[in-house]
Structure formats: C-alpha cells, structure tokens
Design a protein around this nucleic acid. Structure first.
Lengths: 312, 312
DNA sequence: CCAAACAATGAACAAATGAGCGGAGGCAGA
DNA sequence: TCTGCCTCCGCTCATTTGTTCATTGTTTGG
C-alpha cells in the first residue's frame, strides 16, 4: 500500500496544507515524507474528493446560467445579471445600469472598441459612470438611423463612452442605409467615412446588440426599416440582426438586397475582434439563439430571465 | 475600485481556477487580466472566505483530539486511534494492532530506533505485520525486567520489529535494575553492554511507553518494582515513568535512589531523538499528562478514550 | 527458485505561483 | 490648477508545486 493511500496521512497533510497553510516543503520535513509525495498525496486528495473547494457564491443561479451559455453556444464568456431583484418592470434600464458597471471587465487598456447602435447599448452608455481603462478609442460601427433616434446612434454612444473613459472617439457621418448602391459606393469612398469604417473593421473589442426581425422592433419604429423590408427579411428566413448582418434560425448569415445599400461593419468583419453582445427580452429569444449560434459572438451579456429562456 | 474586489470577477476566477482547473495563465488570457492580478484575486478570495476548502474527514473526533493534544502539550504530532468501534473490551490489543499499522509513518529509512519495554509496546510489536522502511536498526533502551515477562522485554520487541522490517537489532544483555551502584558500574563498562547503551543514546527515533506509579502496575506485577519502592516513589511525588526516569505531576524529572542502580537510557538522553510515546488507559491519565508536560515527548499515540481524558 | 513485470519512491527538472518594486494615474488639499 | 500622496497595476525574480525518469523493491508466473 502506497503512503499516498493512507487516509489518516492524507487527512493530516490536507489539514496542514489547506487549513494551517504550511508549504509542502514544511509538511514534508515535519512528517518526514519526501516533498513529491506530499504533492501526490494532495493531488490524490483532490481527485478523491477528500478535500473539496467550496465557492461561496451569492450569484449561484447567474453563474450556472453563465456556464450553461458558454457551454451551449461555445462562447468565451457570458455574464448574466439579475435585473428582477430590485425594480421589477424597469429591466431595460436596470440591465443597462448593471451592464455599465461590468463592461470594463471586458475591455483592456489601449483597446479600440467598436460600438453598435441600439437601445440596449444606449441604455448601457447612459448609465456608465466611469470606465477604468486608459487610452481607449471608440469607433461607431454603423451610420445613423433615420432622422430621429439620435439618442441611440452609434456616434452618440461612442462619444459618451469616450467621455466616461477619458479616451477619444471617431464619428461616422453617414446613414446606415441609403437608397442605392451607388450612393453607398460614393459615401464609403469619402476619406472621412472610409477611415472610420476601416478602424471599425480593426477593433480589439466590439459592443453590439442583437436585433429582432419584427414589425414591432425599434428599428421599424425608428423608421430605419419599413414593414415591407421586414416582410422580405422574414421570408428569407432572417430571425436576427447583428451589426449590419442578418442571420437565420441556424445562425447562418443571410445575404439580402439591403447589404449593398448599407454603410457599416458586417458581422464577418468582426471576426478579428472580441465581440461582446448584449441583449435581453422575451421577444428576442429566437434572435439571440440564432446570433449566439452563429459563432461570431465571443461574450454575451444578458439577464437571468433571458438566459433561462435560451440556455436549454 | 480595484478589479480585485469585483465580486463577480472574483467568483468567475475562482470557478475557473478551482473547479475547472485552469492555470492562472490560462485564466489571465481568457479574461484579459494580467497574471499577477489573477493571483491577487485568488489570494483575496481565500482571505475573504469566498472560497473555502473543506476536508471531508471521517475521523473528525480523532483529528480534533490530535490537534488539541498537539496544542495543549506542544507536541510535534499526535495520533488518536478509535479502539472502541470494533471490539469493546479488547482495547489494549486493538490499540496495538492499529498502532502497528501506523507506526512506520513516524520512522524514516535507515533510522536507528530505540525501543522501550512494556506491554503497550509489546502489543504493538506483536501485531506488526510489516514495516515499510529500509535499513532500520532497533536498539533496546533498557535491560530485562525480572525473570518473567520475557514477552515484553525490550530485546524481544527490538527483535520482533527488526524481523518485520528486514532490519537488524541489538540486544542489551543486562537487567534493568541491579542491587547496587557497584553492580551497575561494572555492567555498564562491559563493552557489549556499553556499546548498546551508547547506540541507545544516539537514536533517530525512540518508541516508549508511559508507566504509572501504582501498586497494580505491570512493573510491580512483574516483580521489577516492589511495593516499598512504589511507596517511596509516590512519596517523592512521582506519577509517571518514561524509560528509566520518573516524573512528578508537573512533568519535572525526579531523581531517585534507584537511578544509580538502573541500566538503561534516561529521558534526558532522548532529547536528540524523536521520542514517540504510546499509552492508553484510564488509570494512566495522570501519568500521561505528566509525561506529555515534560517536554520530552515529540509524538504521542493513544486512543480516543484516553485522548478525551487528557486533552482538556 | 528465478525472472520479469509492476508499483512505489526520491531526485531532478519544468511549470506555476506569489512577492517586491517601481511607474503611472487619480484624488485631495493648497 | 498644481503638487504631493496614495492606490493600483504590470514586470521580474524567488519560491513553490507538479511531473518525469531512473532506481529499487515486490509480487506473480513460469
């Protein structure tokens, strides 16, 4: 019988190591067992669950959901926030607030960060107090949507975030969709626009929302998308939009007629960047599933309610 | 606020480190935090009891008693065996058996091991199957006691242990107590005796019992000590004997008239050796307390019952 | 009874971890 | 607004820990 299996000895070593915080060398000389043996004993103890590490986690459910999401959709990381606890009904605002407090964990110093437009991200931007990173550079990934909705324009978000981090930002002076391919081609050759688009395609991290394809969606309400277009997209199988790209239920990219009239970064262009997506809402369930399945999302931030819907 | 204090982050790092067994480097690159920060986060988590290590210990009581004994009597180590579980009533034999299985944990390869006589140690020796150490050398620490009691003579024990370990042993061909100082002086000059005594005084480890000073003790029964001597020892305040030395209730060594007629190693001579004492029994409670208080005992092996008596 | 496979162990090495140092910002008070 | 202090972070080095390999002992099958 190897010494490694002597339970009394194993327990004694564990006690000394984990509770009394002696080093393996100290235990070794105290008990007169060679140092590698101590290492083996401890290793065995862990494997046989003689010692178990308990993580005192007040966010049990969130953590479970996060793990489930990472597993299910092969994400790099997920963050699930409990928005129901404090104020039921205000989940969008609350989510923005909580996300704002966590977002800097996903951004490094001197990163170039692309930002998408959208209410979810605007909520975040609105609540951000301070981003503890240096030398950040924010780049809008798409042009403006219609004449209204300025509050959730990518430019505005980039500006706000730059302000809160002490970094700087770029402005994309262009609409997201124009009338013709020709218009787009002209615009994207404008140096001022081209340079921003180029930077947008070369970000370290990007923050995007996930859009639903629905007559009631904010895109439609803001006039960026008309009901006919929605109908056509639906017929083509689109269930989600990320940046300027539409996805079907399997998460595959769907080419559309609009693509040629769109000014902004495509999902495929985000491959090199750490793509952080935020989305909540029961109506977005299918859209989120599709977007996460696409493989383009690295980090997904949502709330418990939504996470429960999509985790299974 | 330092990242180190962001609970969500701390929890995520703990999860990855302790549960999913990623290295700090891996976590660092996955979460985009520098490696030393991960180290700090984990360190904080331990300090703040965000993670706790649980030792799944089926010997809860024994371990507690061991710690209590080590603490109370400043021992290097203690081993408490539960002899009551299997066969009530046979605790001496059972204790010998269990101690026999553990004794090699306290002996190193190539050690010279001194052994005392006594029933407790003889019980151990009787039950030993195999000592997994190489190159051991056993030395009896005292001479023989009377003409009977050969079974628990130190020589016999040394022989038995040598046999079970594949090592060798010495024999001390002398009685433990002789009639006069002159006899002793002659005997201990005998080269054959002197050399063994010399080896006994230079052991790596010694295994000793703890004797009680009592008319009913085995020493008296065996005729090694007459009732008058016991009476005189008691009057002198002796409550325990270890090797050839008597101790008072405070654990202080008491010089006696017998000392000059005794052939064997004294307690003081054991200072350089790792002294392992074994003792059980309600009648020995006070003797054990005194012996442990003496400061000469490094490791004490006993049973739960006795440990409970002396731990407080 | 011997040989060969197997198991256990310690030495040496490689990887992982923790600690101290110095620089870069942020904040408070002048 | 400026200055000085103070905190936080990454770099580097020392320590600790895990692993591989060779040696030794042990057991099983011929």
């Amino acid at each position: 019988m190897a010494i490694t299996d002597n339970l009394r000895m194993v327990l004694k070593v564990c006690q000394l190591y984990y509770i009394e915080n002696l080093s393996q060398k100290e235990i070794s000389s105290q008990l007169g067992i060679s140092r590698p043996q101590i290492s083996r004993i401890l290793s065995n103890a862990r494997n046989n669950n003689v010692v178990t590490v308990q993580i005192n986690n007040p966010f049990v459910e969130e953590s479970k959901l996060e793990r489930a999401l990472v597993e299910r959709y092969r994400l790099k990381d997920a963050l699930v926030l409990d928005t129901t606890a404090d104020r039921p009904g205000h989940s969008e605002a609350e989510f923005g607030k909580m996300a704002a407090e966590c977002i800097d964990a996903y951004i490094m110093d001197h990163n170039r960060v692309g930002v998408m437009s959208g209410q979810t991200i605007a909520n975040l931007a609105r609540s951000v107090q301070r981003i503890n990173r240096r030398g950040l550079e924010f780049v809008p990934l798409v042009g403006g949507i219609g004449a209204t909705g300025a509050g959730w324009h990518a430019n505005a978000i980039a500006q706000r975030l730059a302000e809160c981090s002490g970094g700087n930002c770029y402005i994309l002076n262009a609409p997201i969709i124009v009338q013709s391919r020709q218009s787009r081609d002209i615009l994207i050759r404008e140096p001022e626009i081209a340079s921003v688009l180029q930077k947008g395609a070369a970000c370290d991290a990007v923050i995007v929302g996930i859009g639903e394809i629905n007559e009631d969606s904010t895109n439609v309400k803001a006039g960026a998308l008309d009901r006919d277009s929605v109908k056509r997209l639906k017929e083509a199988g689109a269930v989600a939009s990320v940046c300027t790209t539409y996805l079907n239920a399997q998460g595959k990219i769907i080419g559309t007629e609009q693509d040629e009239r769109t000014i902004g970064i495509t999902l495929e262009q985000l491959k090199r960047s750490r793509t952080i997506a935020l989305a909540i809402g029961k109506s977005k369930t299918e859209s989120i599933k599709a977007a996460l399945s696409s493989g383009y999302i690295d980090v997904f931030i949502t709330n418990t309610e939504t996470a429960r819907e999509i985790a299974n």
